[in-house]
Amino acid sequence: MTRVADMFSERPWALSFFGAVLVWLASIAFTGGMGGGDMLTSAMALATFMVIVGVGQMFVITLGPGNVDLSLPANIGLSSAVAMKVMNNDDSLVAVGLLAAAGSGFAIGIANYLLIRALRIPPIIATLSASFIIQSIAISYGRGLQIKPPDGFADFANAQLLGLPVLALGTILFTIAAAILLQRTLFGRGVLATGQNMNAAHLAGVPVERIRTITYAMCGLLGGLNGALLAAYFRGASNDLGSEYLLASIAVAVIGGTSVAGGKANLPGIWGASLFLVLLLTMLNTFGASPGVRMVLSGAIIVGVITIAGGRPSGR
C-alpha cells in the first residue's frame, strides 16, 4: 500500500491516469464491454482541446499565486470567428487563418499582461474584465453567426490514424515540446523560479517581467489556436465555443499535479486529467444521468480529486 502511495507522490501525473482508467472501466462495465475502444477514440479527440488550453493555463498558474487566465473562453470564441472568416471557406487559406487566430490570441495575451502590469490589476480581475471586452468584440465581429470551416481543414481535424485522432497525435508531440520548454530551457526554469518566489527570482537575475509577458502571451496564443481547431472539429465557429474551458483549463492543470500556489508544474498530468474529465462526462452520459445529477456529480468529483491531489506531499 505504501508503495502505491509512493508511486503516486513521486509521479503526481499517475493519479490522473489512474482516475481516467477507472471511469473508463466503469463505463464499459455498464455497457457490457460495448464500444470501449470507440469511447477512448472520441475521448482522445475531445481531450486534445483541453490539453492545448490546459498547457497554456498551466504555465500561467505556475507563475505564482493569483496568476490565472480567465479570458480563455472569450479568446477561443473570438479567435474561432477570426480564423473562420480569414479562411473564408477556402482550403488554401488555412495557414493564414491559423496565423490570424494565433495572432488574435497572442494580442489578447499581451493585452492581459498590460492590464496586470501597467494598471496593476490582479490577474483574476484583469483577465475577467478583458474577457467582457473580448466577448463584445466577438459579438459585433461575428454577429452571432456560425461560420463554417473549409472542408479540407474540417476533415483534417476529424481525421484518424490507426484509430487515433490525428490532432491528438500532434498534440502529444506538442506536449513533449512543452515539457522540454518547461524543464530544459532558461525560460521554463525562469517560470518555475518566478512561481516559487518572485522576489528571489528577480534578485537572482531572472527577467521576471519578461517571463510573465511571454507566459501570458503564450497562453493567449494557445487559446487562439485552440479556437481555430475547435471550429474545424465542430464545423463552425461560435461565441460560446470556449465556454467550458474556463473551469476545464484550470481543473486539468490542478488535477494533473500543477500547484495552485505556483512554482510546480506537471505536463503528463495534463493529459491524464483531460482524459479523466472527458471520460467522466462519457461515464455520466452512459449511465443516463439527468443534467442536474451530472453537474452535481462532476462538480463534486472535481472538488474531491483536487482535494486529494492538493493534499499529497510535494514530490521533491
Binding site: M39, S42, A43, S238, D240
Partner: peptide, 19 residues
C-alpha cells in the same frame, strides 16, 4: 443535453454513441 447548441450537442452525443 444539447443546450440548443451545436457544439454541446455534438460533444455529448459523441460521448454516448459508442455505447
Amino acid at each position: 443535453t444539447g443546450d440548443w447548441d451545436q457544439t454541446t450537442a455534438q460533444k455529448n452525443i459523441s460521448a454516448v454513441l459508442p455505447s
